[in-house]
Design a protein around this nucleic acid. Structure first.
Length: 554
RNA sequence: GGGCGAUUAGCUCAGUUGGAUAGAGCGUUAGCCUCCGGAGCUAAAGGCCGCGCGUUCGAAUCGCGCAUCGCCCA
């Protein structure tokens, strides 16, 4: 039995309205009734607009109708302490200690499954990071990693069957440039310096790769030196890409960002999947030729204009590969594909959605989560980043400095559609400024209380928890499942970090105002320790869903 | 020029089935250590929710227009 106060009250209201009934009762807009938690504590624990929204249909004054609904409420369990008609016709409810005790007891009994939704059978894939293997992951990728991984955890907890994937862009121009960059550094190291081309990757890691290659002659083909330059570049790009991808895998693993599948772009070409996807588009009549190029008729499907799939020189565009990749994902049977992209790719959404539709699927099967920029700050000063110039801060550097917990939590404190200011000094701070410490401190404090508190002598009497702070805490904990569902539905993990921060504030306030352990009152101590333990339990669940640890000591 | 997103307290931002007097942290100011972890707590000050019009019992939230900023495309 779940103890959702909103569902309980809604049920009672609907029953009451039906009991007032008339022949047209089934036409009443019951769906438009809202039951919610008022912001103002004077308005009780829950409020409903039922009388306001039904007044017109019934031809009555809202306040009169509200009185009638209240009179018709049935409450044999004693869950409702008081009701009140307020303002233009709201009905306010206060719930009883009986209700709160049962709700808390149910949370404790549900344990680590509190908020979990039974499997729905929906299959979801979360594709995230998917950075080109042309350089190390930087902080922006870190935000994508924290977001994608947390989304996968949340969706899975919310009943979906989730898989995770990284799309490896190991074909195309960027990879050629990677190979050429390493070759240029090789030449330099061998003593024939030349102006380093502007469009090449300049980072120190390219020089390191070149040194590794020089130092270990066995890794290249024997006749490497005799190969024509394009072959050298091709070989080097593949080798360097693999080296970098290995580092990326290590970075993600250390960041607790789990990936299950690594899908190679090159494999799309090698397995003929691009031609297959283009064939599928053609079959649906979505392709035509113009000026020696092959075009995708995407405009009628919501794109700004039609797009080239194969250029006049025969080279396939990125879009061709993207179409093939999503075609392949759809054929794998996912009900929902979540793509986590950098915000600079937002122009691609209409064309990829058009492709999904052209391939014969509902375009809603693709959800794109766009991540805005991360501004890295130190003492409020912007740390500049530019991949090309090689002046960037890598994810690994940030994690080494502030730790995985702080980095992940900070990345998720804002909605993904807002740019994020990430201050290294704040993330390192061990005080209230730093939200992750504030939340983790809840766990440490409660763990310490539990050590100190007397061992349990039997079930606690939870009806003793009548202080306003205690009721607020139980009410807040009761809202956790709803928060999980909202985060899953809206694909917004920051709802959880916000919930955790609120939990921490409520708990620390409670702790400051009331003594949990009171030797003179063992029964109350027992009840308060039970409440504290429930807070810790649910906090641990929330932290786990965003991939942050819940330490017992700090 | 077109598209997408943003605009809420001094700063950084929450605020989605439209609800009553719009919230939090930081910063500022004033307090709290006979007290379970002060890595904390209490309180105060601080708002034309960018602007205008509309929808309705009710708008930060929905619609239209405008302004500014960011990104993408040409």
């Amino acid at each position: 039995m779940t103890f959702s106060m909103k569902l309980m009250i809604r049920q009672k209201i609907e029953d009451a309205i039906r009991s007032l009934g008339g022949p047209s009762a089934q036409d009443w807009p019951l769906a438009s009734i809202v039951v919610e938690e008022p912001k103002d504590p004077d308005h009780g624990h829950l409020a409903t607009n039922a009388a306001l929204t039904l007044a017109k249909a019934l031809g009555q004054k809202p306040r009169t109708l509200a009185d009638q609904i209240i009179a018709a409420l049935a409450d044999p369990e004693g869950y409702i302490e008081s009701t009140q008609v307020a303002g233009p016709g709201f009905i306010n409810f206060r719930l009883s200690g009986q209700w709160w005790a049962q709700a808390l007891s149910s949370i404790i009994a549900t344990g680590s499954d509190f908020g979990r939704i039974p499997a729905t059978g929906r299959r979801v894939q979360v594709e995230y990071v998917s950075a080109n293997p042309t350089g190390p992951l930087h902080v922006g990728h870190g935000r994508g990693a924290a977001l994608g991984d947390s989304l996968a955890r949340i969706l899975s907890f919310a009943g979906d069957e989730v898989s995770r994937e990284y799309y490896v862009n190991d074909a195309g121009r960027q990879m050629r440039i990677l190979g050429a960059s390493v070759l240029a550094r090789l030449k330099e190291l061998k003593g024939s310096p030349l102006p380093f081309p502007d469009d090449h990757y300049r980072g120190q890691y390219i020089i390191d790769l070149a040194k590794t290659f020089l130092a270990s002659p066995q890794i290249g083909p024997k006749d490497f030196a005799d190969l024509p330059e394009p072959s050298q570049v091709a070989w080097l790009s593949q080798w360097a890409g693999n080296q970098i991808l290995d580092d990326i895998k290590k970075d993600l693993l250390d960041f607790r960002a789990i990936q299950e599948d690594w899908f190679s772009e090159r494999s799309l070409y090698e397995k003929g999947l691009v031609d297959e996807a283009l064939g599928a588009l053609k079959k649906g009549g979505h392709i035509y030729e113009k000026e020696q190029a092959l075009w995708f008729r995407s405009e009628p499907l919501g794109d700004d204009k039609d797009r080239v799939l194969i250029k006049s020189d025969g080279e396939k565009t990125y879009l061709a590969a993207d179409v093939a990749y999503h075609h392949n994902k759809l054929e794998r049977g996912y009900d929902l594909m979540v793509d986590v992209w950098g915000a600079d790719h937002h122009g691609y959404i209409p064309r990829v959605k058009a492709a999904v539709e052209a391939l014969g699927y509902d375009r809603e099967r693709l959800a794109v989560v766009l991540i805005q920029l991360v501004n890295l700050l130190r003492h409020g000063q912007v740390v500049t980043m530019s991949t090309r110039a090689g002046e960037f801060v890598t994810l690994r550097e940030v994690v080494t400095e502030v730790g995985v917990d702080a980095a992940r939590f900070m990345f998720l404190t804002r909605s993904h559609e807002s740019p994020l200011d990430f201050d290294l000094e704040v993330a390192k701070a061990q005080n209230r400024d730093n939200p992750v410490y504030y939340v983790q401190y809840v766990c440490a404090r409660i763990f310490s209380l539990r050590q100190k508190g007397s061992p349990s002598t039997g079930p606690a009497d939870l009806t003793l928890l009548v202080a306003p702070e205690e009721v607020d805490l139980v009410r807040h904990l009761s809202g956790f499942p709803e928060t999980v569902q909202a985060a899953a539905r809206r694909l917004e993990p920051h709802l959880l970090t916000a919930w955790l921060t609120n939990t921490a504030r409520l708990f620390h306030q409670y702790y400051g105002r009331h003594k949990i352990i009171d030797e003179a009152n063992p029964a109350l101590t027992q009840a308060r320790l039970a409440l504290a333990e429930a807070i810790r339990q649910v906090t641990v669940i929330g932290l786990t869903l965003v991939g942050v640890s819940a330490p017992e000591q700090m």
